[in-house]
Design a protein around this nucleic acid. Structure first.
Lengths: 107, 107
DNA sequence: CAGCATCCCAACAGATACTG
DNA sequence: CAGTATCTGTTGGGATGCTG
């Protein structure tokens, strides 16, 4: 998909949240508040460190996630939703309602 | 993306609506009610007949879109949202609100 | 711990030409 | 009109191994 061809505003949300991992990550961040990389890796079932890094960087670049580094040994990095990231919640809830509704139709 | 690995209910919506074209198509269908293939091709800016066919078949298989064939010459095929398809509207509106909000942040 | 680098494959998407 | 067939290129995602 060519990322720069946004066709309608709705599509914009998909540009930012699409792919296999972004929504699961945001869901975890929404529930946990602040969380470290390794803990995130454990909580988002099935994700590899590589994909977690890529997705977090992408979310960070879009201003949805904030990253805070502590100069400790071993290193500590914490992630949390930004203000904009938190504003996604109503949308996610609506998507969740619809997803559950549609799943229930198929038994 | 492995289509059968749904991680959270929210992700379910992305399985059904993800990709470049499905939301634009559904948006047009939501506004027009009933529409023919060629008219759809003209309205969804930039789509090719091939992609339109693939996406419509996929949406049909997921029960979001209904297809009605008339045995005329030349052939007539009409598409419209199913009841389930129409149930997406609140979710799309929420996504549209958020998309517009986030776009406005970037000026 | 928190990552980056490399290689690889499958799915997605576009262009073009053709058909009932 | 409403598609299908074929070829081709791009992107997303996985596996593995290595580093500060």
């Amino acid at each position: 998909m060519k990322k720069n061809e946004i066709i309608c505003p709705v599509e914009y949300s998909f540009q930012l949240l699409g792919g296999k991992w972004k929504l699961p990550i945001i869901n975890v961040l929404a529930k946990s508040g602040v969380i470290r990389f390794k803990e995130l890796e454990r909580t988002v079932v099935g994700i590899t460190p590589k994909m977690l890094t890529i997705q977090l960087r992408s979310l960070e670049a879009d201003g949805l996630v904030e990253r805070k580094i502590y100069a400790t040994v071993p290193p500590t990095v914490e992630y949390k939703l930004s203000t904009v990231g938190k504003s996604i919640k109503p949308m996610i809830e609506e998507m969740e309602k619809w997803g559950l509704y549609h799943q229930s139709l198929k038994g």
